[in-house]
Design a protein around this nucleic acid. Structure first.
Lengths: 345, 345
DNA sequence: TTGTACGCGTTATCAA
DNA sequence: TTGATAACGCGTACAA
């Protein structure tokens, strides 16, 4: 592997000059134009490539940002990761992925991570106990943390959220505009930060438009966890025509609600409208295409990375970022009583 | 930041001894038990943490494996990444994510990546031109490459695939068992490696069960690209009852096919069965739940990482890995003429 | 404008 | 069983 010394010898200059030229530093009053050119030429000819390891060591720090998450295969997280990766690359940092899957190896993996001296850490969807350990260890080392949608407790230097409350409000506004008055709500869990916020947005919307919410039209919990209760709830709404629309807090559960309705022969949206939240990939392919709220996952990841890098660089930054959401109207929501056939093309 | 020298001073030993103990090296006949204990105690008390940067520099190499891909937010890729991440962590390596999004910055980003001296690179779904540049640069540096489902051209040291051919064959077997004889095929593109392989598997299955395939029942192309042709094809199949089943090469397109059928009032699977390929997250939530073939994305990522690490370590490895697929029967496929209601629970 | 000396924290080699 | 010394490749004072 060719080093700056090799180049210095070959170009008949000191390796200091080479270091300055190849390190692209602009030390004031340093290295003449012709020397610079000769060095560049020799470096190119010899196929020189910086040894980033030595640079890191010399500087005592890296340009590594760790992205810590426990499951990156979920679209919610992979899109955040994607956004973060782009912002990180653009700022000439690197992204080191750290999936904290195994509870027993977590601490050891974490120590190994910290030994690599990351410049900052982005946290997304990690369980509270491990988060605390990590936050503590990182803090003692002065490594800044950025959280993406951490609803357990705001800590760290940067916190990024999506505006779920306004997003859910806009769903209610949309449904209200279509003539819906009795609207059910399926939450994925009111104890969860975002579940609570979406429910809050739902209630705010209802109130804003003078609608009363009957709490018997609320279901809280994942289909995966309580499938029978979930199905029974949808059945009760549908058979009793207790609501003309079901406002669901996640796309997956919304898809499940539609499936249950359709398996009972209930037409969506002609008889009951259904809405989701997140705008996952399948929303435009399923039948009927799902009306939902686009969560700006990529933007959230990018914002977390961008603010974190500002912190690292000692620049002024925004400690709390709330990225706006956007209503996406598709075919699963329709006017009340208006049996419009949801058409494709 | 406390270093081994600080500890040596505090423990009254040479920093060499500290290095050996804290570096967990087992140099034969080295450092007595009591010295070792004293060093460990002092290190713990002083809150020592290795400087991985210095270690990297000294060794001239890192324990970093780069994962290069152009879009990690797609479930296909994020699941591969997830599997790779776990295997990498287990082997005490780190995963550096490199998303090669921007064509103009690709080369520069690549150079910066190589300056960090990754021990190996995993490649997934990157465009051929960039792949070639990367493969060339990596090769001259002696960095081993592992490809995950690279159908353009087998190169690199390790190549991992999923067994699409057998997977698709098993779909035909399944449909044949349900009494289907006229089966249509929707491919996402026969020019694509996996598209071709799935089509091949489909044809093999048809032949195996003595079924003839009428090429007028073949559609090739993405819905996104040719929506009108896509819809027209499905309409033609459905209205003419040209087939009793549509075997689709991807889950997304399968979902789209079902949507089109349902929007025309055609019942799935009572009138036409539909199958997909990949087993994405939504397959069990959509209506009807999609019969598909599970692609072992996580296992593919893990295999690529595991073999690559063997290469790095100079151990014997498997250059070509074909991970088996698995048929997942759900509700979108049913017996011919048997109008069984696809029930939920 | 250029060159020299030194240090970053660790690991490896050699001598004791 | 231990300790001193020399690298690793680069960056930066400081001297020339």
């Amino acid at each position: 592997m060719v080093t700056i010394k090799d180049i210095a010898r070959e170009a008949n200059v000191s390796f200091t000059a080479v270091s300055i030229v190849l390190g692209k530093r602009t030390t004031p009053g340093r290295v003449g134009e012709e020397t610079r050119e000769r060095i560049n030429a020799v470096a190119a000819r010899m196929g020189y490539s910086r040894n980033g390891l030595a640079t890191n060591m010399r500087r005592g720090r890296t340009n590594l940002i760790a992205f810590v998450s426990n499951n990156i295969s979920l679209e919610y997280t992979s899109r955040v990761l994607d956004g973060a990766a782009e912002a990180i690359d653009k700022n000439h940092y690197f992204l080191k992925l750290f999936t904290a899957e195994h509870p027993d190896t977590f601490r050891k993996s974490l120590e190994r991570l910290l030994e690599q001296r990351p410049a900052g850490i982005i946290l997304r969807g990690i369980n509270p106990a491990r988060m605390e350990v990590l936050a503590d260890r990182a803090e003692t080392r002065g490594i800044p943390l950025a959280f993406v949608e951490n609803y357990h407790q705001e800590s760290g230097v940067v916190n990024v959220f999506s505006d779920d409350i306004l997003g859910m409000e806009s769903v209610v506004e949309h449904l209200h505009g279509l003539g819906h008055r009795r609207i059910a709500h399926v939450s994925n869990g009111l104890d969860l930060g975002y579940g609570a916020r979406r429910y809050q947005g739902f209630l705010q919307g209802m109130e804003k438009y003078g609608l009363v919410f009957d709490e018997s039209l609320l279901f809280s919990g994942y289909y995966e966890v309580r499938p029978h209760d979930f199905v029974a709830f949808v059945d009760r709404i549908a058979s009793g025509r207790l609501a003309t629309a079901i406002c669901v807090a996640t796309d997956f559960e919304a898809l499940t609600v539609m499936s249950i309705l359709q398996s009972r022969g209930v037409k969506v949206p002609e008889e009951i409208s259904v809405t989701g939240f997140a705008d996952m990939g399948f929303c435009k392919n399923c039948y009927p295409a799902l009306t939902t709220v686009r969560q700006p996952f990529e933007e959230m990841g990018a914002a977390a990375a961008a603010e974190l890098i500002k912190v690292i660089r000692g620049q002024p930054f925004q400690a709390r970022v709330e990225v706006p959401t956007e209503l996406v109207v598709r075919d699963s929501s329709g006017a009340v009583g208006n049996a419009t056939t949801a058409g494709r093309k």
